[in-house]
Amino acid sequence: MMLIRASAFAVGKDFDQPLGALIQSGGTWFVRAQIKDRGESIDVAIAISGDNLGDVIYFGNPSSCVHLAQGLGVEYRIAGAIEGPGTPPAGALVWSVDGKEQAFAVNGTYVTQAGTESKSCSKDRAFYARNWGAWLVGEDGKDVGDEALFFNKIAGAQGVTTAAK
C-alpha cells in the first residue's frame, strides 16, 4: 500500500488547474490539456491511468477534482523496454523525434507533459514505453512516498490496457 501524506493533495475545480496539471476524478488520473479541434483550442482532460487510458474528456462545466498541492510535481518513469520505432498504442509514453520531449499517445495525436499537443512525435516511427507510471516529487526533486501514484502496463500489440492504481 502506498502511503502519501494527505497534504500532498488539494481539492479544486478541474478547469482552474494549469495545463499539464494532474487531476483525479472518479479514481482516474488525468492530465489537464488543450488540443486543437477544427482549428480551435479546446480544454480537455486526458486519461493517463485506469481502464480508459488515452481517452479525452471535453470540459463542459467545471467540476471538482483532486489535484496535487502547490510545490509538488510529478516525474514519469518507465519500467522495462522502450519499444520502436513503431506506432504506439493509446496511453503509451512517447519520445519526440529529437528525444528531448515525452508525450502521451492519444487517439492519433500526442499530448506533452505540459498539456499541449506535440507536433514533434512520429505517428508511425515513434519510440515509446508501454509500462510507465507517475511518482510524486517535492520542490527539491526528492520522491514523496515510496511507490508510484499510479502505474500503467499496456498489453502487447492489441493495445489492450490494464492499469494499477
Rank of each mutant, 00 (worst) to 15 (best):
residue 81 A to V: 05
residue 26 G to P: 01
residue 82 I to S: 05
residue 47 A to K: 01
residue 106 V to F: 00
residue 92 A to G: 11
residue 88 P to L: 10
residue 86 G to D: 05
residue 108 G to N: 13
residue 76 Y to I: 14
residue 126 A to N: 02
residue 108 G to L: 12
residue 86 G to N: 09
residue 107 N to E: 15
residue 71 G to C: 07
residue 108 G to Y: 10
residue 126 A to C: 10
residue 77 R to V: 12
residue 109 T to Y: 02
residue 36 K to R: 10
residue 33 A to I: 09
residue 97 V to S: 00
residue 112 T to N: 08
residue 81 A to M: 10
residue 65 C to H: 03
residue 114 A to P: 01
residue 121 C to H: 05
residue 110 Y to R: 15
residue 49 S to L: 04
residue 48 I to Q: 01
residue 51 D to T: 15
residue 49 S to N: 06
residue 96 S to R: 05
residue 102 Q to N: 11
residue 58 Y to Q: 12
residue 42 I to S: 09
residue 122 S to E: 02
residue 109 T to W: 03
residue 79 A to T: 13
residue 26 G to L: 10
residue 39 G to W: 13
residue 26 G to Q: 11
residue 107 N to V: 14
residue 101 E to R: 06
residue 57 I to M: 04
residue 63 S to W: 11
residue 122 S to D: 10
residue 72 L to Q: 07
residue 110 Y to E: 06
residue 106 V to T: 11
residue 33 A to D: 02
residue 75 E to A: 12
residue 78 I to Y: 00
residue 43 D to G: 12
residue 73 G to Y: 07
residue 37 D to E: 13
residue 88 P to S: 15
residue 27 G to V: 09
residue 61 N to E: 15
residue 112 T to P: 03
residue 26 G to E: 14
residue 100 K to C: 10
residue 71 G to K: 09
residue 114 A to W: 02
residue 30 F to T: 01
residue 25 S to E: 08
residue 106 V to K: 04
residue 58 Y to G: 00
residue 45 A to Q: 04
residue 103 A to Q: 04
residue 66 V to S: 09
residue 55 D to E: 12
residue 73 G to M: 12
residue 60 G to I: 06
residue 50 G to S: 04
residue 27 G to P: 03
residue 111 V to Y: 03
residue 38 R to C: 09
residue 33 A to Y: 03
residue 77 R to E: 12
residue 60 G to C: 07
residue 120 S to K: 09
residue 62 P to N: 13
residue 100 K to I: 14
